[in-house]
Simulated scan of single mutants.
Amino acid sequence: MKGKPVQGRMTADGTGELVVFLIGMRINSWRAVRSWLPVFLAMPGMIKELARDRERGMLGRRIVPGLRNFGVLQYWESKEKLLAYASDQGGEHRPAWAAFNRRARAGRGRVGIWHETFVVPAGSYESIYVDMPPFGLAAARGVVPVARRGERAAERLAA
């Protein structure tokens, strides 16, 4: 976690709909480096592209490391912006997706990929961070004192 802890009880700033997107890969055969390494190396380029151009809609992200599974937790402004990025012919994603499909056919299951998308309506999420550096949704949207959005989780969920 980067940054200094923000003292006190904080919550993530912002309201409205939120999209949580989880994406990752699983190495099914460690010896099949030619199958999984290009998949692994494609993600940093996409993340850099999205971080450079905030208008694309990614609010923030967090790497989720693992031994065999690697993933990225992403927060997006809207499902429309997420889908627009996924289908953008000029972006990093489309060539990476096409290359993965070619390798997947040839690799016969040596690497797997997955993603999950959650569209979270306004008023259906809340957060609290106590003496923490900005983390998760707070790192994506910024932090405000808990009192601004409600002292209790039920109040923040009703907002």
Rank of each mutant, 00 (worst) to 15 (best):
R52K: 12
G60H: 06
M1Y: 07
G71T: 05
L83W: 01
M43Q: 06
R52V: 11
F118V: 13
T117M: 12
Y85N: 03
I23E: 01
M132C: 15
V39Y: 00
K4A: 15
V120C: 05
R56S: 12
V120M: 05
G16C: 04
A96H: 00
G45T: 02
Q74F: 05
G71P: 10
M10R: 04
R26W: 00
L67G: 01
G45K: 00
M43A: 11
M43R: 04
E155Q: 13
E55N: 12
M132L: 14
E77N: 12
W30R: 11
G112L: 07
M1E: 12
V143A: 11
V119R: 09
K79E: 10
V111T: 14
R9H: 10
G24Y: 00
A106L: 11
I47Q: 03
S124M: 12
A32E: 15
P65A: 09
I23D: 00
M1S: 14
G90N: 10
R31A: 13
L67M: 03
N101Y: 00
A106H: 05
F21Y: 15
A140G: 09
R34F: 06
G45A: 05
R148F: 00
P44E: 05
W30S: 10
A153V: 13
R103M: 10
A106T: 07
L41G: 05
V111G: 05
W114M: 06
M25S: 05
M58F: 11
V119D: 11
W76S: 05
L18T: 02
P133A: 14
R103F: 10
V144T: 03
R103Q: 08
L157I: 03
L137G: 05
K48S: 13
P145M: 04
M25D: 03
Q7L: 14
P134D: 13
